[in-house]
C-alpha cells in the first residue's frame, strides 16, 4: 500500500483536487440556473444571454482548472487507479451542498454511501503493485 502511495501519491492528490473542482464548478453553475426562465432570457436578447453567460462563467472556469489539474495528475500513476478517484466528487458535492445549501436535507443512506465511496477509493488508491 505504501509502495502504491509513493508511486501514485502525487496523482492521487491532484485527482482529489480535480474532483473537488468538479463538485465546486457544478455548484457554481447549477445554482444560478435554478431560477432562470430560459424563454425570458432569450426574449431579453443579447443582454439577457450575456448576463446568463456571466452567471455560469465562474463554474466553467473552475471546471476548466479542474480539467487541467486532472490532466497533470493522470501523468503520475496508473489510469485504472487514478480515474476512479473522480468518484470523490460526489463526496465533495455533498460536503459543499451541506455548507452552502443548508436547507437541503441529506438522507442517512447518502451519508453511508459517501463513506462507502471513500472506502473504495482507499482500497483502489493503495492497490498498485509493479
Amino acid at each position: 500500500m505504501l509502495e502504491s502511495l509513493k508511486k501514485n501519491g502525487k496523482g492521487i492528490i491532484l485527482l482529489l483536487i480535480s474532483a473537488f473542482s468538479l463538485a465546486l464548478g457544478q455548484l457554481l453553475w447549477k445554482k444560478p440556473l435554478e431560477n432562470v426562465d430560459i424563454p425570458v432570457v432569450i426574449a431579453q436578447g443579447f443582454s439577457g444571454i450575456w448576463l446568463l453567460f456571466l452567471k455560469v462563467l465562474p463554474g466553467f472556469i473552475v471546471y476548466a482548472i479542474g480539467a487541467v489539474v486532472m490532466t497533470i495528475g493522470l501523468g503520475y500513476g496508473e489510469l485504472s487507479v487514478l480515474q476512479p478517484i473522480n468518484s470523490m466528487s460526489y463526496v465533495f458535492a455533498l460536503i459543499l451542498s451541506a455548507i452552502f445549501v443548508p436547507t437541503e436535507t441529506i438522507s442517512w443512506i447518502t451519508i453511508v454511501g459517501v463513506f462507502v465511496v471513500i472506502a473504495g477509493v482507499i482500497v483502489i488508491g493503495g492497490s498498485s503493485k509493479k
Binding site: 441529506i106 443512506i109 447518502t110 462507502v116 509493479k130
Partner: peptide
Amino acid sequence: LGEKITGRKILGMCIIIVGVILVAVGK
C-alpha cells in the same frame, strides 16, 4: 496502457459502485 487488472482494483471499483448506488438512492 498495459496496466494490470488486480483483484484489489476490482474490489475497490465494486465498493465505489456500491457507494454511488447508496448516494443516489439517498438523494
